[in-house]
């Protein structure tokens, strides 16, 4: 498996090491592309938290100098949108665990698409403990992870898994186990993404957000040379979260909550 350059260095190091061990690396190519429509993807955690019924604040009001359409709680693509290159045949899991950092109220990345059998390595980067668990997963029960400590988990099989933290309600991560996934990339804030070393072959590029596939898949064929996908991948077809109620037309609406 090969990961995109946008990931943190440690996160990148592990898959790169794995790629070095894969035969036929000489035939790998760089694939570049771009996604659009990220601004339509609304972060489900943040959008749930802005509802009065969530009791997450005593007051919430917009800054009048920020344009109302920008006040939508859109996803932060570098961490939350995952572009997966899905091959035609089953892919072996990486020999080294895949790093996921925990800190700042979220995991990095938030959505992860992995091959079956991939071991995920959660590392706590916060100065206080976390208590991660897999929703409905007996094999990933709540357990404390101290600051700078880690714990590993291998999802049991293909499917969509959600990871939460008993000590941080805003922390939600999704792991999608896709047996055919060959590599993943994370777009930059401008939407561009890069697969550094993708072996020659036919792939389907597909975006994932909050554990769900978004947008239309795009078929690509990687040859000996680098490839640049000309048409951007639109990620607007499936938005998991409802639109911001303070969207254009409702700008300036203040929220008050609490007891």
């Amino acid at each position: 498996m090969r990961l995109a350059r946008r990931l943190p260095r440690r996160l990148l190091a592990l898959p790169l090491l794995a790629c070095a061990l894969v035969p036929g690396l000489a035939l790998a190519a760089q694939v570049k592309g771009r996604v659009v429509g990220v601004e339509k993807l609304l972060n489900p955690v943040w959008n749930e938290a802005k509802e009065l019924s969530a009791h997450r604040f005593t007051f919430r009001e917009p800054s009048p100098t920020v344009r109302s359409d920008l006040r939508n709680l859109t996803a932060y693509a570098p961490k939350e949108v995952c572009i997966a290159a899905i091959a035609e045949g089953a892919q072996p899991p990486p020999t080294l665990p895949l790093l996921v950092t925990v800190g700042g109220g979220r995991t990095t990345p938030v959505t992860l698409v992995v091959a079956a059998g991939t071991r995920v390595h959660f590392e706590n980067r916060d100065p206080f403990p976390h208590r991660l668990y897999g929703v409905g997963q007996a094999s990933f029960s709540p357990g404390d992870t101290a600051s700078l400590a880690s714990r590993d988990w291998t999802p049991p099989g293909p499917g969509r898994y959600e990871v939460r933290d008993e000590l941080a309600p805003s922390l939600r991560a999704w792991i999608v186990v896709e047996p055919l996934v060959a590599a993943v990339a994370y777009p930059a804030r401008d939407g561009s993404f890069t697969f550094a070393n993708l072996a020659a072959g036919k792939y389907t590029l597909r975006g994932y957000f909050a554990g769900n596939p978004v947008g239309a898949p795009r078929a690509v064929e990687v040859g000996a040379g680098n490839l640049e996908v000309k048409d951007a991948l639109a990620l607007t077809e499936a938005a998991p979260a409802p639109p911001d109620k303070a969207a254009p037309g409702k700008a300036g609406k203040k929220h008050e909550g609490g007891n």
């Binding site: 943190p8 972060n43 955690v45 943040w46 938290a49 802005k50 997450r56 604040f57 005593t58 007051f59 919430r60 009001e61 917009p62 800054s63 100098t65 920020v66 344009r67 920008l70 006040r71 939508n72 709680l73 859109t74 932060y76 961490k79 950092t101 800190g103 700042g104 109220g105 979220r106 995991t107 980067r125 916060d126 100065p127 206080f128 600051s147 805003s170 922390l171 929220h255």
Partner: peptide, 27 residues
């Protein structure tokens, strides 16, 4: 306690996300 942590961030908290999207609020 977080001063020496490399890559320490707060971006996942709804409070910070709100502020980064133009909202003022508490938590």
């Amino acid at each position: 306690q977080a001063a020496g942590l490399e890559g320490f961030e707060l971006g996942g908290y709804p409070l910070v996300a709100d502020a980064l999207h133009g909202w003022v609020r508490d938590d």
